[in-house]
Design a protein around this nucleic acid. Structure first.
Length: 424
RNA sequence: CGGGGCAUAGCGCAGCCUGGUAGCGCACCUGCUUUGGGAGCAGGUGGUCGCAGGUUCAAAUCCUGCUGCCCCGACCA
C-alpha cells in the first residue's frame, strides 16, 4: 500500500478529551474517530488492526472445532422477557419499537438468541458436543462510557456458546475453550493473567477472566508469585470490609504457595459455565439416549475491539504505539527519503516494495512528498515494528537501512540479507 | 443518577471579565526555495462561535433554558 493513497488520519496533537494513553494514541495514529459517546468509527488503519485480532481469534476458534455463525444485532425483546433478563439487564439494554410497535433491543450478548436458535437446530444428543461462535457488534448502553474503545457502548465481541449432554461434557468443552483462549492471547503477544471471577449478569457457576496487565486497568487482580493462584481482587475473601486490597501485597497466598502480588488488569476475555440456566428457562430440550434433556451450556467472550486498546496500553512509548508483530497494520514501513532529485531512490523503493510484496509481507510504502522527519514520526506513532529507509545516502554504499521500532538507530544490511532479516 | 469541567475552522487553543460582527499555531491548497528527524517565504481555502429564546441600535461576549462531550463516583464484560 502506498501511503499517498491511504487515508492515514494521523494527528500531531493529543485530542483534548482523551485521558488514557491508548485512547490518545488510537486517535493520533488514525485508528479511530469518535461519533458519539462510546461509539466510534474505525479508520483504515484501525480496521486493519481489528481484523488482525479477529483473524487470530477466528483461526483458533476454528482449530478448536467451534463453528462460526452470525446472529442478529437486533433482537426481539420478548426473548429477554422470557429469560427474565430484561429487568436484570436494565438500562444497559437499549430497547426500541419497530413500526408495528413491537419491542426490540440491541443485543448486548446472545444467550437468548442462541438458545432459541438451538431449539430447532439441535434435536439429538448425537449432535453434541457442539460449540458455535460469532464475531459481531454488541451494544451495551453503558452508564458511563469512557477511555475510547476500552469501555464503549458499541464494540466488537467474539462470543461462543457450547452445548453438552452433561456436566462432564461441559467441563470438557470449557477446558477446550480455555485452551483455545490461551493460544489466542499467546499469539496476540500480550502479557495476561487468567483469574477466577464473578459471573455477574450472565449467570452460571464457574467463571474465569482473561486480563491484560496494565496500570490503566479497571480491575484489580491478586495472584501468587509461585503458583497458578489468581483471582479478581473483588472476590478475595481474606479482605475485611473497607480494607485496602493492596494491604495484602506480599502476604501469603490463600493457596499456601508463594506470596500475593496485586496488579491492575483490563478484562479482555471471560469464560463461563452456564449450566442449564438458559436451556431450562427458555426450554431448550434435546433428545438423549433415554428421553430428552436440557443441555449444559457454556459461554465464552472475547472483546476484540477492547484488545486493540489493551494492546496499546501495554505496548507504547513516548513516540507512539509499538505494535507486537501479530497486530501491526503493516509488517514493514518503507520510507523513501528525498527521491525528487534522485531517480535511483524511487527505483530502489519500487524494487524493495516488489520483493516484499512477492513474499506476502504487508508493506506501507511512504511515497508521500513529505520531509523525512514527518514520515519517520508518522511511522512511529502508527507503531509499525520495522522501517526500511531508502535514501541517497545509503543507496551509494550498496546497503540498505533497517530500523526496528524499538531501536534508537537503524542498522545497515546487505540487500541479500534484507528478506531473511524481515522474515525472522 | 450525584459532583466537577468544557463547547469558537479537521486538530490544539486565544478572544468573553469591559458587547461593535472572529483570530493564532498545526493541518489542507498554489507557487518558489529547501530536503536524513515534524522546513522557510509568499499567497490562499475553510467557522450561521453547540442549539433555542431574551436584553440591546448591536451578542462569540450579558441573561434564561436546553443539548452534547469529558472527568470523578455509583454500576458494569
Amino acid at each position: 500500500m502506498k501511503a499517498s493513497k491511504l487515508i492515514l488520519g494521523t494527528q500531531r496533537e493529543n485530542p483534548a478529551d482523551a485521558e488514557i494513553v491508548s485512547h490518545q494514541l488510537m486517535i493520533r495514529a488514525g485508528l479511530i474517530r469518535q461519533v458519539s459517546s462510546g461509539i466510534y468509527n474505525w479508520l483504515p488503519l484501525g480496521k486493519k488492526v481489528l481484523q488482525k485480532v479477529e483473524d487470530i481469534i477466528r483461526t483458533e476458534m476454528n482449530n478448536s472445532n467451534a463453528q462460526e455463525i452470525l446472529m442478529p444485532m437486533v433482537q426481539p425483546a420478548s426473548l429477554w422477557e422470557e429469560s427474565g433478563r430484561i429487568d436484570q439487564y436494565g438500562q444497559e439494554l437499549l430497547v426500541f419499537l419497530d413500526r408495528h410497535d413491537n419491542k426490540f433491543c440491541l443485543g448486548p450478548t446472545h444467550e437468548e438468541i442462541i438458545t432459541d436458535l438451538c431449539k430447532n437446530l439441535l434435536t439429538s444428543y448425537k449432535q453434541l458436543p457442539v460449540t458455535l461462535y460469532q464475531i459481531q457488534t454488541k451494544f451495551r448502553d453503558e452508564i458511563r462510557p469512557r477511555f475510547g474503545v476500552m469501555r464503549s457502548r458499541e464494540f466488537i465481541m467474539k462470543d461462543a456458546y457450547s452445548f453438552d449432554l452433561n456436566k462432564e461434557g461441559l467441563d470438557q468443552s470449557y477446558a477446550i475453550m480455555k485452551d483455545s483462549y490461551i493460544k489466542i492471547f499467546n499469539r496476540l503477544g500480550l502479557d495476561y493473567r487468567i483469574v477466577k471471577a464473578d459471573s455477574g449478569a450472565i449467570g452460571g457457576s464457574d467463571s474465569e477472566e482473561f486480563h491484560v496487565l496494565a496500570d490503566s486497568g479497571e480491575d484489580l487482580l491478586a495472584f501468587s508469585d509461585k503458583s497458578d493462584y489468581a483471582i479478581n481482587a473483588e472476590l478475595l475473601t481474606e479482605l475485611q470490609e473497607g480494607q485496602d486490597p493492596y494491604s495484602l501485597e506480599g502476604k501469603q497466598s490463600p493457596d499456601g504457595q508463594g506470596n500475593l502480588k496485586l496488579k491492575k488488569g483490563i478484562e479482555v476475555g471471560h469464560i463461563f459455565k452456564l449450566g442449564k440456566k438458559y436451556s431450562e428457562i427458555l426450554n431448550l430440550r434435546i433428545q438423549g439416549e433415554n428421553g430428552d434433556i436440557n443441555p449444559e451450556m457454556g459461554c465464552y467472550g472475547i472483546g476484540a475491539s477492547r484488545i486493540v486498546a489493551a494492546a496499546i496500553e501495554q505496548n507504547h512509548d513516548e513516540k507512539g504505539i509499538v505494535w507486537p508483530k501479530s497486530l501491526s497494520p503493516f509488517q514493514v514501513a518503507l520510507v523513501e527519503v528525498n527521491s525528487k532529485d534522485n531517480k535511483n531512490v524511487k527505483e530502489k523503493c519500487n524494487e524493495v516494495y516488489q520483493l516484499l510484496k512477492d513474499n506476502n509481507i504487508e508493506t506501507l510504502w511512504d511515497d508521500r512528498d513529505k520531509r523525512p522527519g514527518v514520515k519517520f514520526a508518522d511511522m512511529e506513532v502508527i507503531g509499525i515494528p520495522m522501517t526500511i529507509i531508502v535514501g541517497e545516502r545509503t543507496l551509494e554504499t550498496g546497503q540498505i537501512e533497517i530500523k526496528k521500532r524499538k531501536d534508537e538507530k537503524p542498522e545497515l544490511v546487505s540487500h541479500q540479507d534484507l528478506l531473511s532479516l524481515i522474515l525472522n
